[in-house]
Amino acid sequence: MTAVILDGIVLGLQFGLLGVGLTVVYGIGGVLNLAYGQLAVVAAIVMSITMRSGLATGPAVLAGISAAVAIALLLNFTILKPVYKRDDEDRVLLSLLLTIGVAFIIDGFLVWRYPIEALSLNIDWDPVSILGVRMRAGSLLASAITLLAGGALIFFFRTTTTGKAARSVIQDEVGARLCGVNPAAVRTLIFALSGVLAGLFATTQAMTSPVPISAGFDFTITALLVTVVGGLGSIRGAFLAGLILGVVNAMSSFYIGSYVTTIILLAAAALTIVVRPSGLFGAKA
């Protein structure tokens, strides 16, 4: 029981990290990036390839994260430009359709060039005992990285001027502009941040289970569910929702079975939307 819950927490923290990357972009750009999971997969594949060609793990991880950031920025500066000229639901809808196209291109390219590539990072330290449960070092390291990243995010958004400016854009784009905040600059920063988070997620995932090239769509859906349950645009909500969904996932896949788990997760998300359309911490519906 404890082991299952701990596993769920390890998973949930990562879900949260993944969700934050999607939710900040939605909150700030009003853009739903459905190619988000593919960013993580690209990061993973770049890590895998560079490591195979002899690069050490550290630099390879950096290379992977940079690749995700580069693609995120490329999207922000090219195909999303016309999207920003629209408002509200039109903006979300167009961004969603365009990024589906991007997801197809990335998936198609990976299937074409690297059909069997997958990233796994083996952490061969000794297992550590926590609450009487022997935890794999990989899981612990993944959780530690995620917690650090989460802490850094909260620090960034709560205390730094840039972070506060970013939050002001989430709350009210026009108001922020009137106060001298440049939404376009904030958007660029946040897109880069989402690339970093996608890359970090790929790294931590690979420490517990391999990341294949086909995982993009699943990652996006997971991020979307986390985001919706947590409340679009809420960072706290994303982490809490990630934890809840992670534990639910671990429990039901241990006690019930894997396909029912997915259905339970989906039902939980659907129920959250129906009962509380703004999510656990969402400001706006």
Partner: peptide
Amino acid sequence: IAVRRSLGIIFTGIITLTFSLAFDNLLLG
């Protein structure tokens, strides 16, 4: 449901998408 809970385009999209994925899993299971 969408009308009752006044879900916008996006939430209607997400809720129907979750149905799609759940249905797919049900078929597989």
